[in-house]
């Protein structure tokens, strides 16, 4: 019922970036992020270099840059915080366009913004070029414990089912004349969330039952079993 096709972060393609082994991509992302985070705040040229590197990967992957930029909005809460920092941090101050700002705050805000954006952009590129099930395969090859891989697999599988259920509950609420407009309505939304949690928990039990009925004993291989 009304489920979108494909995961919203994946961009279908056949570029070398798409075809690269998922565990290599995961390691590259991890390495890249660690290097970015470890770079001192005032090595401005280094950040430019990172951005160029990332841009090169995006170009090779043939994923349209606007596709990635639109999905960068997840970063907004961090951006707000980064923009606030020059105003609220203490220490020596500088005048910028007549506004007194903290030097430390400016630098810290810049670093948060630069590191955050690079990290999110790199992760989005990975998500856009790798199918969710290949990511699981990659994690499995990197020896992530089986249980964690399984939990992520179930999350990917059921996120749409639970999302759909949530949507149906909202429609049912609204059909009875309820829309959450102000904090007085939050208890109703909270109770819906509680009901959704219980339903999901029960679904988990039924899924487990169905698995046990087919001889499940604790191990589960993601694809690649042939």
């Amino acid at each position: 019922m009304g489920q979108g096709h494909g995961h919203k972060l994946h961009f279908h393609g056949h570029s070398p970036v798409h075809r690269a082994a998922p565990h290599h991509k995961l390691l590259a992302l991890l390495g890249f992020t660690l290097v970015v985070v470890a770079t001192p705040k005032d090595w401005f040229a280094a950040y430019g270099l990172y951005l160029l590197l990332l841009a090169a990967v995006v170009v090779v992957s043939t994923v349209p840059p606007t596709y990635l930029l639109k999905r960068l909005v997840v970063e907004v809460p961090f951006v707000v915080f980064a923009l606030l920092m020059p105003f609220i941090a203490t220490g020596p101050r500088v005048e910028v366009l007549g506004v007194s700002l903290s030097e430390h705050g400016l630098l810290a805000g810049w670093a948060l913004l630069a590191k955050g954006t690079l990290g999110v952009l790199a992760s989005l590129t990975l998500a856009a070029t790798t199918e969710p099930r290949d990511l699981l395969l990659g994690l499995e090859r990197l020896r992530l414990p089986q249980q964690l891989v399984q939990i992520m697999g179930f999350m990917i599988r059921y996120v749409d089912v639970v999302g759909d259920e949530m949507r149906r509950m909202r429609i049912a609420r609204e059909s009875r004349g309820f829309t959450a407009r102000n904090p007085k309505h939050w208890p109703v939304v909270a109770r819906s969330a509680g009901a959704l949690f219980i339903r999901s928990y029960e679904r988990g039990e039924r899924v487990h039952l169905a698995m046990v009925s087919r001889g499940y004993t604790g191990s589960l291989r993601q694809g690649s079993d042939r």
Binding site: G153, R157, R206, L209, A210, M211, R214, G215, Y216, G223
Partner: peptide, 30 residues
């Protein structure tokens, strides 16, 4: 559990693997 095959009411409870093929392979692989 090999001899008795139960098909539950909600297919979403029964199908949990990334592809149809993996899902059908789940039982015999076990």
């Amino acid at each position: 559990r090999r001899r008795v095959g139960i098909v539950f009411q909600d297919p979403d409870d029964q199908l949990f693997m990334p592809t149809v093929r993996d899902d059908v392979a789940f039982g015999p692989a076990n």
